[in-house]
Amino acid sequence: MPVNYYIFLSIALFCIGIVGVLTRRNAIIIFMCIELMFNAVNLLLVAFSKMHHKAAIDAGSVATNVGSDGQIFVFFIMVVAAAEVSVGLAIIVMMYRNVHSVDVNFLNRLKH
């Protein structure tokens, strides 16, 4: 599979995430779109990792580990995302308790 396909797929997902962040007003959905962006990155990293692996094999090294760092990075992204979600949702819930809304357009108390 040519790597370009994966790049375009990831970029498309990434951009859909960005559009979501820009257009939606519900904090939770914005957050979800951010997760979508993370996932697009993950997919891209895995694709690259496999690409580099293949390149290394084609270059002649047999039992190579080239490319595994990309997947490890993905693992770390997932780890971080999990932590971030726990905190983020706690914040959103805290906000909701006080305001009874998660609409980011209500976030204007600081604009004066």
Binding site: V21, G88, I92, V104, L107
Partner: peptide, 27 residues
């Protein structure tokens, strides 16, 4: 609260950009 939420959403967004950057560089 509001500051926190704002910071969080934008911070996470920028992290997303950063990760994309890292991914492309890795590629």
């Amino acid at each position: 609260n509001e500051a926190s939420l704002k910071y969080f959403l934008l911070g996470a967004f920028s992290t997303g950009l950063m990760l994309m950057g890292i991914a492309l560089i890795y590629g």
